[in-house]
Amino acid sequence: MLEKSFTKEEWTEALKELQSAYKVFVPVKEGDFHNFRPLKNGAKPSFDFQNTRLSAKSIIFPQSERMFEYSLDDSKEDAHIIKETPKDFSTQAIVGIRPCDALAFQLVRINFDNPQYRDPWWIQRMNATTIVGFGCNEPCASCFCTSVGSGPFCEKGLDALMVDLGDRFLVKSLTTKGEALLGALKSGKKADGTVLKQAQELAKGSEKKISSTVPTDRLKDKVVNELFSAHFWERISFACINCGTCTYLCPTCWCFDIQDETCGKEGDRIRNWDACMFPIFTLHGSGHNPRDKKLQRVRQRFMHKLKYYVDKYENGVACVGCGRCVQFCPVNIDIREVFGLMNGY
């Protein structure tokens, strides 16, 4: 294991240096918030944030992705045949991801990489990625990561962890991938005992700052059809305007649509993020729609994360407690309340 400390200036330089071997994604300040961007074209990394507005999920699972290409030009031998397109799966690093968002990759892995079917793009991109987490010194009021198997300094799913020590970053490797990344950097000095102790203290203090908790202990034992017909869905879903913001921001939402886009005689088959909040998501060709009511769609989202996923994979809940859906729901629907209602039903 490597443990190195960098002054903040050294770290910014080190990230530039990494670009020779990695495509580097870093948090960049954009207006009032931060998002992950490739470190190029002068993008300036900024580690002064609580969490990025969007999670890093699009780096592994792009919001819109070309799957295949085709030609409708009948003079071509392969007209109308769907073909694979060259894709770039070169080595990349996500630097500065919060532990909750990193855990999300581990939770969705079972969907994209299951014993029966393997999503080649998600898997290859994930394999090519080194994940450098960033401990949370100041968690948000809406964070509840410690209740759902994560924590402000949780190391699950990380290849390395960065800790902000005020004037410097401590960066420690956790896997061989992380060690390779850190080992490739010339700058930084070996972290001494004082620095390591300081980081430990910060981690302990930060956990205490998580004020929100949710109960999950009884979700697995609940009878699915009883939860499904619970009376509280009416009240929970009442204010929902089906905007889909929760699904867009959620690091564990993975649903997608597949569409063909043709321009002239050439076209692409693409996949785009989709959301169970939209009525056409489940509209049949016959006109029948099993989830044509808002209540059904709101229930689907919460049941999926807190019951169906729990039952299907025995891997805990499909929520990492990042709190984005709580913060940005325009009508204040709060998943923490739903945890309580479902667990206590």
């Binding site: 649509d257 489940t282 169906y308």
Partner: peptide
């Protein structure tokens, strides 16, 4: 029957409870 896209239990739309109709 259910509306489907991927057909292999990944795109997430054809579930009934924890079962994907496609897979």
């Amino acid at each position: 029957e259910m509306r489907m896209k991927c057909g292999i239990g990944i795109c997430g739309r054809c579930n009934i409870g924890d079962q994907y109709v496609c897979k």
